[in-house]
Design a binder for these strands. Structure first.
Lengths: 336, 336
DNA sequence: CTATGCTGTGCAACCGGTTGCATGTCAACC
DNA sequence: GGTTGACATGCAACCGGTTGCACAGCATAG
């Protein structure tokens, strides 16, 4: 039991112990079919005696196969991401990959930094809802296999959650309830999802003849939603569709503070189904499919790594409205 | 702009471009003081021109300093952890460390596996709320610097969130409201936090002369809380303290289904303040300080790495009751 | 004018594996 | 019985950096 050596046992030590060359020790692990069974046996025995464990890092250096991948998200604590992270994690695990997690704090520069720091030790990177410019993303994609989630850059494999379908359903839902004047509370201007949702609500409103205004909550957070309430009410709307559930919760809290009842006097729709039915009243929202997105992104990345051919693959996940308890008939009041 | 090279730019290419030796390029980054300012300048310029980024893995191999650490949690998607993960992430970032994230799925064996997989490429590991046995933890701690969060194993540095103080306050709070019969809905049996909370509620109940019973929700989840409701009501209690906020939300939902009003007929206290004031009615809970714990664990780990001396350091973070809207006076009814 | 001491840079070994190629051995084949 | 080829193993270069040591150039001291 010589495992007490500080720095770990190396193949050289095992080679000496077993009376073979270093290369044979290496092969005993990577290509045992190349060696005679007895030699393999002898080497493994020696390795066991010394407590040898192959060095992941050294192996990575010479093979270029790191067995690692990185996942970069804007905000780990935003409830939209944890289920996605978890799914990615689990999927990577199934192929013996380790996952680096990066948190960009919604900051493009930090995202760029993280990309650089990771790129030396991973085989591929998944960028979720990046805030970075298309050019920078394309530049990084040249260096390493890259898969995007919720961002559409030409030539780069991606998984898109199409919240447009769900948002359209939500708009229809509000129209059915008799709402004529609604507000979209938008998220980060650099967010692909935000652009998509904004476009979807605009298009649906136009088609349905609704009166639509915009209020901006540049960072999606509870506070931002809270602070948007005055602006929302000033528009004279009777319903709001929020960029995401966290913002929606902030709006609900703000409405509560001002004594506006939901859904009696005002209806609210979130997006991403990040909180599930946890809240009371439970939030009407658009499904997110973030779990599938995380899982899919990893398997897509691994596929790209397997076949050199970097196919420009796109997966699109459609979403739907989940009706819960924060939407109801428009209040009776004169409306022009 | 020669960055189109596939495999990344190496120190040799930069050396040639700048007309110096490889070692000088290396030193330009690691010990610029050893070189003349002009040489450093020239090298950095060449590096910039080529788009050179130092290879983390190669560096790690020759220095033994990996610049990575691993954080293993039982469930990324449990809202208690994301803020902690984020804080750890940010703190590690400040020292140029990359973070591996592991998700054990509440499974001790998976935890063991992850520990093994990471250990070859990180300098240290943080284990949050581990489900692993003391022996295995101690064994891993011999191989790599290890810091624990919410687990107390002798001789290993740790950060403990003492929810006992907050739980005691919660019990007192319920007693003040006239509750005489309460339930503690417990979490995973292998969880240190659960043991601690259980002990705290028991001790406080005894001191206050309350009637206490236990209901078990072995995995902390919304569903587990939901399913615990019948058992809770069967005990004839008028208030429950749940292992965590997610479980508490499940209990609230279950009570709602059964037409039991909160806090009118029943009071509920959560633990961890994982949801903040987001919910309606907002949950009375115990503060968690998970952000500080994450940050502290990383700085503690880095400190251990810095000084070889593996001090048996313990940080204890006290918690307090946060009174919101799910607790109120005990309902008027005969009680013995 | 030589001895002494810096300073700035290059050489080459090393970290711990992997892998293409060469070599040696032995059995099968013509 | 000599040639052929398959098989098992070793040699040495390589992955991309780091670092101890040698050495050249120059200024200062004696």
């Amino acid at each position: 039991m010589a495992a007490e050596r500080k720095g770990g046992v190396t193949i050289s030590q095992v080679a000496k112990e077993a009376g073979v060359a270093r290369s044979s020790v290496s092969r005993a692990y990577t290509r045992p079919d190349m060696l005679s069974p007895e030699t393999v046996e002898r080497i493994k025995a020696a390795a066991g005696r010394l407590g040898y464990v192959p060095n992941h890092t050294a192996r990575a250096l010479s093979t270029g196969r790191y067995g690692n991948l990185a996942l970069i998200v804007p905000d780990v604590a935003n409830p939209f991401f944890p289920p996605m992270i978890r799914a990615a994690q689990v999927e990577a695990d199934r192929s013996d990959f380790c996952v680096f997690l990066g948190n960009s704090d919604e900051d493009p520069e930090k995202e760029d930094q993280l990309l650089g720091r990771f790129s030396g030790q991973v085989e591929g990177i998944i960028l979720a809802s990046p805030r970075l410019s298309d050019e920078r993303i394309a530049a990084h994609a040249l260096l390493r296999p890259l898969v995007l989630i919720n961002r559409d850059v030409k030539g780069i494999p991606k998984v898109l959650i199409d919240s447009g379908t769900g948002i359209a359903e939500a708009t229809q839902h509000l129209a059915d309830f008799g709402h004529r004047n609604i507000v979209y509370v938008s998220g980060p201007s650099t967010s692909w999802s935000n652009k998509q949702r904004r476009a979807a609500v605009r298009q649906a409103s136009k088609k349905l003849g609704l009166d639509l205004s915009f209020v901006s909550a540049s960072v999606p957070s509870f506070e931002a939603g809270l602070q948007a309430v005055d602006a929302i009410l000033a528009k004279g709307a009777t319903a709001a569709i929020a960029f995401d559930d966290v913002t929606a919760q902030g709006i609900l809290a703000g409405l509560g503070e001002r004594g506006v009842s939901v859904p009696g006097e005002f209806s609210v729709v979130g997006c991403d189904d990040a909180l599930g039915p946890l809240t009371v009243p439970s939030l009407t929202t658009v499904s997110s499919r973030s779990i599938e997105a995380g899982k899919l992104a990893v398997s897509l990345l691994l596929e790209v790594l397997g076949s050199q051919a970097v196919r420009d693959a796109s997966y699109v996940l459609e979403t739907h409205l989940i009706v819960r308890s924060t939407t109801g008939p428009a209040p009776e009041r004169g409306q022009g």
